[in-house]
């Protein structure tokens, strides 16, 4: 094994999502003061990469398209044990949809050279589209498998992968190079050790801009994204909120009455 790439997305800490508000004038989300963390499923991707590395060797490289401030999130991934990181950062990338993001990540993979395995989290917790892994694979002309819940390395350099399907699973055998997207059932991400944090300080985070990658502006950023945002609003819930009062017996009586009215019983 020469190289395993883990695609990593810094996301706003889900614990702080309640603090997100919207600027009614500009229709943009205000997320100031909300910390970035590694997308939770990407930690499972890192864990998978590290355990494969443990058997087959090679280097584990973190790859992320994000603003320069994402370096600190990448550092957390390095502290888990990845060898180095590549941060793809350029104003031209801003506003990229999933296909444009996949173009940028694909360029990053090509910049790195020959890669045996590319591992993504099955979806990001903020965008939740689950589209980037498949699109990256297509742009690199590599096969891919999503919803991965188990992995076995074959002797012949192939990989036997178990993926979830409705009410069950499918097992597949694929040759490397391969792109896989993993679910949380796959493994338990290791805890970061203090020595890991210290070691991460001296690991390389290479920042590349489009000067290095030379992707056509026509396929990246807001302008290069086929999908466009046509509107955004906070979700509102309007319901009657009628409180049933009285003794428990009375409450039960009127509950049953409602259920009857709805035509259920």
């Amino acid at each position: 094994m020469e190289r395993i790439i883990v695609c990593l997305k810094p996301v706003p800490d889900p614990k702080q999502w309640d603090e997100v508000s919207m600027d009614p004038e500009t229709q943009t989300l205000i997320r100031e003061g909300i910390a970035s963390v590694i997308n939770p499923l990407d930690k499972h991707a890192i864990e998978a990469a590290l355990s494969i590395q443990g058997v087959l060797g090679g280097e584990v490289v973190l790859l992320s398209m994000a603003p320069p401030s994402a370096a600190s999130t990448l550092r957390e991934g390095l502290a888990m044990g990845a060898d180095r990181a590549v941060l793809l950062s350029d104003r031209m990338f801003a506003g990229s949809d999933t296909l444009a993001t996949a173009h940028v990540l694909a360029a990053g993979c090509r910049w790195l050279g020959d890669n045996d395995l590319i591992i993504c989290g099955n979806m990001s917790i903020d965008g939740s589209t689950a589209q980037v892994g498949s699109q990256l694979a297509e742009l690199l002309d590599l096969p891919n498998i999503m919803h991965v819940i188990d992995l076995d390395l074959g002797e012949d350099g192939s990989m036997v992968v178990t993926r979830k399907i409705e009410h069950g699973f499918a097992r597949l055998r694929g040759a490397l190079p391969l792109v896989i997207s993993v679910r949380k059932e796959l493994n338990k991400p290791r805890y970061t050790s203090f020595t890991g944090i210290l070691a991460a300080e001296s690991k390389e985070i290479k920042v590349l801009s489009n000067e290095d990658l030379k992707i056509s502006p026509e396929v990246i950023g807001i302008d290069g994204s086929p999908t466009k945002m046509a509107g955004i609003e906070l979700r509102r819930f309007e319901r009657a909120r009628e409180k049933l009062d009285g003794s428990v017996d009375e409450i039960v009586e009127s509950l049953a009455g409602r259920i009857y009215q709805y035509g259920i019983i």
Binding site: P14, D126, G127, I232, R235
Partner: peptide, 9 residues
Amino acid sequence: GWGGGVIAT
């Protein structure tokens, strides 16, 4: 989006 807190078109 955002865990459903926002809807986008």
